[in-house]
Design a binder for these strands. Structure first.
Lengths: 150, 150
DNA sequence: CTACAAGTTCAAGTAAACTTGAAGTCAAGA
DNA sequence: TCTTGACTTCAAGTTTACTTGAACTTGTAG
């Protein structure tokens, strides 16, 4: 039994389309060795890397951000539990923040939207610490105007 | 004092770019009256509608989905608290689901990814009830292959 | 040896959610 | 009246994350 995987094997095992895998490789998120013919071979460790990528996407991260995170993994050996754990601390915090925001939204939905008090106040709900920024597509900046005098 | 808002006034108050407001109007998410000149005038109620739109986007909904939700509001009068409340029930549930997923992800980050047990198992974390589907961009289907015999 | 499945590259297409630019019209203060 | 600044439309461009198709090569089972 071979210890490496072809692109379609990896695709089947991970659920990520082969075209996406090629794309990820092109973006530097995963790596492969090439056979003489040019065919890719992936190590099984790539499965974990992919799990992390999918995971992070569900958290709303862009591939660019994910790539930056993955660069924190050591390159001198195959990353193991301890290496992944290094990432997981900040990530738990990240998830907690997101959960906290959702809780605020939920409260706001009940109180603020339904009662009719709503206008600019809503911004504090969505983004209480004024860090409008790279939040993906969509309007990025309730609270964008600091000196609102109208 | 005018009771209606120009597009730039609405933009400043909502934090949503004027170009985005035109786009939303084109998509039917908001409405405006037109002056003889063709200039748009928005009612203040539009602010609440916008708040809802931004809110929903933060929950990861597409404009199409948001539009569908907004259609549930009555058109025979300006929606008030009670009307918005009608939407808020299902929405709380929606938020709760999302929070639950994040909790699962958090657990999984600690246990599954970092310990090394990971591969296909991860799917159950991301999508425990096998409803891979329209989850936005990204690989949609850990668990996409029911009959994995390799 | 011959199919045919599986692999390759590269360019172009897609979808969502906007933004930008051009070219022109309208409104308001000095 | 003149001159900005705000507004209009419409077409085209942008970004992210891929997918699709064409044209071609490799690998393998019979």
């Amino acid at each position: 039994m071979e210890t490496t995987l072809t692109i379609n094997q990896l695709s089947r095992r991970s659920g990520v389309a082969a075209s996406a895998l090629r794309y990820y490789e092109e973006r530097g998120l995963i790596q492969s060795e090439r056979r003489g013919s040019g065919h890719r071979r992936f190590t099984r460790a790539t499965l974990r890397r992919l799990a992390f990528i999918v995971f992070a996407q569900r958290l709303g991260m862009s591939l660019a951000e994910i790539g930056a995170e993955l660069e924190k993994l050591p390159t001198d050996h195959v990353p193991k539990g301890a290496d992944w754990s290094l990432l997981s601390g900040p990530w738990s915090a990240r998830i907690d923040e997101r959960i906290a925001e959702l809780e605020r939204l939920k409260t706001g939905l009940a109180q603020c939207i339904s009662c009719g008090c709503l206008s600019l106040e809503f911004c504090r709900l969505v983004n209480p610490h004024d860090k409008a920024g790279a939040l993906g597509p969509g309007p990025h900046y309730w609270l964008g105007d600091k000196s609102s005098n109208d």
